[in-house]
Design a protein around this nucleic acid. Structure first.
Length: 495
RNA sequence: GCCCCCAUCGUCUAGGGGCCCAGGACGAAGCCCUCUCAAGGCUUAAACUGGAGUUCGAAUCUCCAUGGGGGCACCA
């Protein structure tokens, strides 16, 4: 059982090597929930030690993404904090000092093997169908000789000296003890020849120095978990609590979700990148609820706000098995949370989508439209296809759509003329005023409401599917509604 | 190939030895409501990977097999 009474310090530590991914968002969410639940701190640390892979703008995208989701961090590269800097390339000296500590302790050693030699060795081992492992050439160097060569300026890396005997037991909150034979763990490079650390050093040093209490990370780290535990112990530090989260799988369930999958998803209006989510019309509440439940089992009432998630979150309810992502479920949560938004809030959120589609939005009209389309939206972007016609001067219906089901153009025109007659005689077209006489007409004409209202719908909105007819005409206004109806009559008469 | 992790409806999951001929959600199908489309309500189909144990009793514990996933870099 996890103690939720002590403030936790948790961190999300993405590397700025591309677009921010769903999995990063979920780790951040759980981190955030744990921090808030315990009154602790949620920290963003940027792991940018691989200069070659660093993508400009990526760090900003991560920060924007976290804020868009509403996962505001308490400490981070742009806002600082008591344990900074929060960008690993700015902590270079710290890692070098710590690498030296390990070397002095005899727990790490300089390695002068060239990348070429290593690559050749890898090839040979592969040919012999062996697992790649460092052959220990430099491990066998005497400390004096190694020190001399380092002093001579010879190019080198620092490797961690794994014990060659025995086994390591590492404890994970979700999976219990993980035991592995030490001989199966290589002497990993912890400090590269460019002077920057690898993850194995940097993350361990930072987590300790930043007083991280719980490390939540993807289960792709499970295989190097025992190494990390050894590094921490070599320093003589206390370990944080470790939680290896389940992986996200492709929608097919075949293989780990990768950045490539976004290219496929985008064709269907989905994405695995947070920045796309926003543009596609997904809202943070929906995305959060969706990713929260992949890897976290809640018995019932699975529609939750961030606040509710904080209340209900528990590490013990996290699941260890990989989860295939399911965009249909994202639709569901997005639609559900859209329906939960108050009118003015929803209005503010859909406005940019109308504008992006080229409409000039009138706010007074927008607020009236919101209740009509709320329960019809899966994404915010859907507002355009549902309600764009409200901001249109004229609509261009497909003539064939004006013909009611089971009737011909002539009959449809007659109905339209009658409707025009009834509606134009009314003082205004509020739905309370307009609907009763039209219902009465349907009644006495022997036609179906579907037929009559269908013609009116296509005539006034220009589309076969629309928000409720009379409520829509009310917003369009009497003048414009009749104008559109008249035009439709003309179209029908020409057929 | 080697090492590690995981295993309940199509998907996400509840389940901690009897409360389970297995519950919820998404999706699917049907019905109701209905001016279209939704939303909403009701209903149905749909799962404990297999085999050995342990036990009076196993979805739950153990082992093996199988399947799935991850890792095997001077990447994170």
């Amino acid at each position: 059982m996890t103690d939720y009474n002590n403030p936790a310090r948790v961190r999300v530590a993405p590397s700025p090597t591309g677009h921010m991914h769903l999995a990063t968002a979920r780790t951040a969410l759980y981190d955030y929930l744990l921090a808030k639940k315990t009154g602790g701190k949620f920290i963003l640390r940027v792991e940018d030690t691989d200069i070659k892979r660093t993508v400009p703008g990526s760090e900003q995208e991560i920060m924007d993404g976290l804020r868009w989701l509403g996962l505001d961090y308490d400490e981070g590269p742009d806002i600082g904090g008591p344990f900074g800097p929060y960008r690993q390339t700015e902590r270079r000296d710290i890692y070098q000092q710590h690498a030296k500590i390990l070397v002095d302790k005899g727990r790490a050693y300089p390695c002068f093997c060239t990348p070429d030699r290593l690559e050749k060795m890898r090839q040979e081992q592969q040919n012999r169908k062996e697992t790649y492992h460092y052959d220990g050439t430099c491990r066998r160097l005497s400390p004096d000789e190694a020190a001399r060569r380092v002093a001579n300026g010879e190019k080198h890396v620092i490797r961690f000296k794994m014990p060659q005997e025995g086994s390591t037991t590492a404890h994970d909150l979700l999976r219990g003890d993980i035991v592995i034979e030490n001989k199966n763990i290589d002497d990993y490079v912890i400090l590269k020849s460019d002077g920057l650390p690898t993850y194995h050093l940097a993350a361990m040093v930072d987590d300790h120095l930043m007083q991280i209490t719980h490390v939540l990370r993807g289960s792709e780290w499970l295989s190097t978990f025992p190494l990390h535990v050894n590094v921490v112990r070599a320093f003589g530090w206390d370990e944080p609590e470790w939680v290896h989260l389940s992986l996200f799988l492709k929608p097919s369930g075949k293989g780990k979700l990768s950045k490539r999958d976004s290219e496929i998803a985008i064709k269907d209006g989905y994405s695995v990148f947070i920045k796309d989510m926003r543009d596609l019309g997904f809202i943070p509440e929906g995305v959060l609820n969706w990713i929260a439940l992949m890897g976290w089992g809640v018995p019932e009432d699975d529609v939750m706000s961030l606040e509710e998630m904080i209340k209900r979150f528990s590490i013990d309810n996290l699941t260890a098995s990989p989860a295939a992502i399911n965009f249909a479920k994202l639709d569901h949560f997005n639609g559900t949370h859209i329906r939960l938004l108050p009118d003015p809030e929803l209005a503010a959120r859909i406005k940019p989508f109308f504008i992006k589609a080229g409409y000039s939005v009138k706010d007074d009209m927008l607020i009236k439209i919101v209740p009509l389309i709320r329960e019809r939206l899966i994404t915010l972007d859907d507002c355009v296809s549902f309600a764009g016609f409200f901001f249109e001067d004229v609509v261009e219906p497909n003539p064939d759509d004006l013909i009611a089901k089971g009737l011909d153009a002539k009959q449809s025109a007659a109905i339209a003329r009658k409707a025009y007659e009834i509606l134009s005689a009314l003082p205004d077209l509020t739905h309370q005023v307009a609907e009763p006489p039209m219902r009465a007409y349907v009644e006495q004409s022997g036609l179906s409401a579907n037929q009559v209202f269908g013609i009116l719908r296509v005539a006034t909105t220009g589309q076969k599917v629309s928000p409720p007819l009379f409520e829509s005409m009310e917003i369009i206004g009497k003048e414009k509604s009749l104008e559109r109806l008249k035009k439709a009559i003309e179209m029908l008469e020409k057929m």
